[in-house]
């Protein structure tokens, strides 16, 4: 099957399946968080999985999206338009800062992006006249319920948010798969394997990196806007170092080489803390333990490892 169509069907099926089995608004709420994370982590997959670049500052782009929908409506920009402004701003910033930063490699790139994210976090924390400071700010009401009502579908707001985030995540996943299989995507993957080899094949390596960086920044910003609107409240913690680390962790845990890894990683690390509330005192122990054990057992992440396993079983079945 065409990989793009396959991605569309799989993601859409997951969105619908969730809606079918969720018994209450609370599940829909967690579900929409999973899809919001899927969006930002898909951006990480484009950057890390396709091109092999580690960023520890994507929470900064996430927060640009979040604060765009929080701040701009106060100046007369509608929330929907603010989302696009935030995404454009994040993409633009990534392009501008990407040129000098992306000459760095490995951990040096990690610390440079970390610094960028921290600078964004600091501005959001200090400039409280604009952002409300560390206590955060209210995000003007926006409810996708009304959109669904326009086409005659009535549902609770948590359900509406679930469907909206699920659909945006589907679009994001499909676009990322499409990108990965385009000539451009093959150029990006060539960069992943070797800068030198890629450039000898005629790939503009610097440009490829900047474009991937900007694309992943836009993914993060869109996710940030959606989270801010869904929560109705936002604090600078969204730009924090730990949030950047969390995004990369989700990608690697699920398997950074594939967008399905983004979905699985988001699912596990979003749902697990909710499951673990009954052992509240030991939550960190279990969470950390699961992360270590998963990475030890499945070194390239869950999805690639399970894919290998399925492949091996299929081979064995055939040889019999």
């Amino acid at each position: 099957m065409n990989p793009t169509l396959k991605a569309l069907l799989i993601t859409l099926a997951l969105v619908v399946a969730g809606a079918l089995i969720f018994p209450s608004s609370y599940y829909f709420r967690v579900g929409s968080l999973i899809w919001i994370n899927t969006i930002s982590v898909t951006g990480i997959v484009v950057l890390l999985g396709y091109v092999g670049l580690v960023s520890l500052g994507h929470a900064g782009f996430f927060a640009i999206g979040a604060y765009a929908v929080a701040v701009l409506p106060g100046y007369g920009v509608p929330s929907g338009a603010a989302l696009f402004v935030g995404a454009a701003a994040a993409g633009l910033l990534a392009m501008v800062i990407g040129r000098p930063i992306l000459r760095l490699s490995g951990y040096y790139l990690a610390i440079a992006t970390l610094g960028l994210g921290m600078l964004i976090w600091m501005v959001l924390t200090k400039e409280s006249w604009l952002t409300g400071g560390p206590d955060g700010m209210v995000v003007a009401g926006f409810n996708p319920r009304h959109w669904f009502a326009l086409v005659g579908i009535k549902m609770k707001s948590t359900e509406a948010w679930y469907w909206l985030t699920g659909l945006v995540a589907t679009i994001g996943v499909v676009l990322a798969v499409n990108l990965g299989n385009s000539p451009w995507g093959r150029a990006l993957r060539a960069v992943h394997d070797s800068d030198v080899a890629a450039s000898s094949l005629g790939v503009d390596v610097a440009r490829a990196k900047v474009v991937a960086f900007a694309i992943s920044a836009v993914y993060a910003a869109v996710a940030g806007s959606l989270l801010a609107l869904a929560n109705g409240y936002i604090t600078p913690d969204t730009a924090g170092f730990m949030h950047s680390v969390e995004m990369v962790t989700m990608a690697v845990l699920g398997g950074a080489t594939t967008v399905y890894g983004a979905i699985v990683g988001s699912l596990i690390l979003t749902a697990l803390p909710q499951v673990l509330t009954f052992v509240a005192e030991y939550e960190h122990i279990v969470l950390g333990g699961v992360m270590v054990a998963t990475m030890v057992a499945m070194r390239r992440g869950l999805v690639p490892a399970l894919g290998d396993l399925a492949h091996r079983l299929a081979m064995r079945g055939r040889s019999k």
Binding site: S25, R29, V30, G136, L227, N231, Y233, I234, D237, T238
Partner: peptide
């Protein structure tokens, strides 16, 4: 705040 919001939904 993000976790708090989820727990608020859960409590309700």
């Amino acid at each position: 705040p993000n976790k708090a919001r989820t727990f608020a939904t859960r409590l309700i």
